[in-house]
Amino acid sequence: MNKIKVTMYFRANELTMPLTYHLVKDYDLKLNILHADISLNKVGKLVVDITGTDENIKEGLDFVKQKGVEYKIFNKSIIWKEGECVHCGACTAVCPSGALAMDKDTWELTFYRDKCLVCGLCVKACPLKVMTLADNGNGS
């Protein structure tokens, strides 16, 4: 089993087919929708975690492409150098998905990696420069 994070881009008239249904039903993929911004007659965006076998993921993505939906696999991730963090919270001001949030008891920063959209806003917003964008190959 493998898990990847993908952004799919829908053209304004591509909402007629239940794409996620087919990915689940026909390719046995587990989808976790992290972010969705889709409305009628507008270019839409869907960010999902996809879990499945390598083969099913590949075939599922081929199907997506075949249906004319562009996609991009996340090949980067955010690395938090926790030991150098002062837990000020400046990054939480810009994090769009709530992946970075303050614990309301300890007032420590918590990083929910599953929710991270790898948008990179926290990298610039962190005054201590403890957030970095790294290639997945180079490891976390």
Binding site: V86, H87, C88, G89, A93, M102, K104, W107
Partner: peptide, 25 residues
């Protein structure tokens, strides 16, 4: 401010701290 949201003009606006309460404690 500490609650995480402030109501302004009927909207819930998220708040974020810039100074470290953890270290202040």
């Amino acid at each position: 401010l500490r609650s995480g949201f402030v109501e302004m003009n009927g909207r819930k606006i998220p708040t974020a701290p810039l100074s470290s309460l953890k270290t202040a404690r």
